[in-house]
Design a protein around this nucleic acid. Sequence first.
RNA 1: GGCGGCGUAGCCAAGUGGUUAAGGCGAAGGUCUGCAAAACCUUUAUUCAUCGGUUCAACUCCGAUCGCCGCCUCCA
Length: 481
Amino acid sequence: MAIQVYNTLTRKKEEYKPINPHMTGFYVCGPTVYDYFHIGNARPFIVFDVVRRYLIYRGYNVRYVMNLTDVDDKIINRANERGVSSAEISQKYIAAFFEDIQKLGVRPADAYTKATDHITDMITLIERLVENDMAYESGGDVFFNVRNFEDYAKLSGKKLDELQVGSRIAVDERKKSPIDFVLWKAAKPGEPFWESPWGNGRPGWHLECSAMSMKYLGESFDFHAGGLDLIFPHHENEIAQSEGATGKPFVRYWLHNGFLDIKGDKMSKSTGNFFTARDILEKYPATAIRLFFLQKHYRSPIDFSDEVLQSAVTSNERLRLSYQKIVEAAGDVEAISISESDLTEEEKRFYSMLDGVHSEILTAMDDDFNSPLALGKMFDLFRETNRFIDNGLQTAQSRQLVDLARQRIDEYDSVFGVIDRSKAQVGQDKINEVVSTMVELRNAFRKERNFAVADKIRDALADAGLVIEDTPQGAKWRWGA
RNA sequence: GGCGGCGUAGCCAAGUGGUUAAGGCGAAGGUCUGCAAAACCUUUAUUCAUCGGUUCAACUCCGAUCGCCGCCUCCA
């Protein structure tokens, strides 16, 4: 079964066929670094990283590139507000960006490309467009000549005559057509600028993505992803700039994630209706935040609420504790091969459940990365494995099977990253000794059936975030949620 | 106005022309426990916004209605 992806360009699911069998090119629109990114911005970073991980899991050699847009009106405005340089602003928020995605468990891209490092590539691209009569200079600015690019609006499906041009932004009178967009902006006082054939200036918004994606992934590549709102104009204009210059199809599959809403409204910096990712990370574990996102399909809108996030925290705890239980139950198993004929009936059932879940998870993810369905199957796998363990592991084969389940879970979680392993180890420092002593004391009181004191110890530890569990193997402690 | 999306249990959420409408959270009961915790078991949608239509058969396709949301030139 091949992977099916929903392609915004064709508005249907298509089978994924690599352009180049040796390299899957994947470009994701990254941040404009003028502020901390908010939890809605985090969605594409997380979900497309998962898409990329899944492609890798399925054997594709993915080259994953993300831009850092560090020249832009918003950065300049922010710099002016604070009386610092644009570079200071962008450096600060690039550093913050890396901190935040790292905490969110997003794997690093193969390349992060900064717009300011690629000015000459952008100028070259504009020159090609001018040569092709796809762009024209006017008063130090260079505009894309939309009327000369036949395929314009093929991604967004808009009709040029019906675009309500100027509804939000005043139309520049130097444009040949109001729908033309700027490729190069002449320098204004107090703004960063670079030299160009059209005088000093700076690149327009969409240009860096065209220039950098083609530079690192080739003039035609497989995937380009970003938020729904980027379809128009950003990605539309990228197509125009790229194909207008090369005459080749730019991107095969366009992927767009749905929005994160707050009480039904889009989370947006311009309205002040947002929470930064770093604030949310203060309150919730990253694996719970990931689960929150991945339990909904990436193209659907999500309503952000503490209630739903809290339920993700609870399910995340369930995964975390069950995983630990599975690891402990498997113990240090010897690598013996499982021969099906030696298995008990129950073991056979478990073994075939493992294979059933495996194919269900692959089928789910193959179908346009249906992570909610796949995670549902993973919860099934946990429940079945817990039950299998609870029924008692009599044979070496049984423990071997549990270990196989553990391996499978590790595989799946290499894609999803929803199991919190940060608390897997009980503390190794002084706290460990203190807590162990407390637990021993409590055991002593329990033996004397002095439950009042024993419970008081347990309550005190609970206040410190520690959970005591009395198991058949004795009392254990762990960190709570 | 143009284009696009959505409406499934208390909440979140998969699904889709015909098997019991996944899974998670919550709630209730049970096993285990001194009590808990964790885990497991059972229960929790005769029904998929509403109304029509197509069909042997629709939650799934078509139409209408209501409600919600996004984009329409620098927002993920």
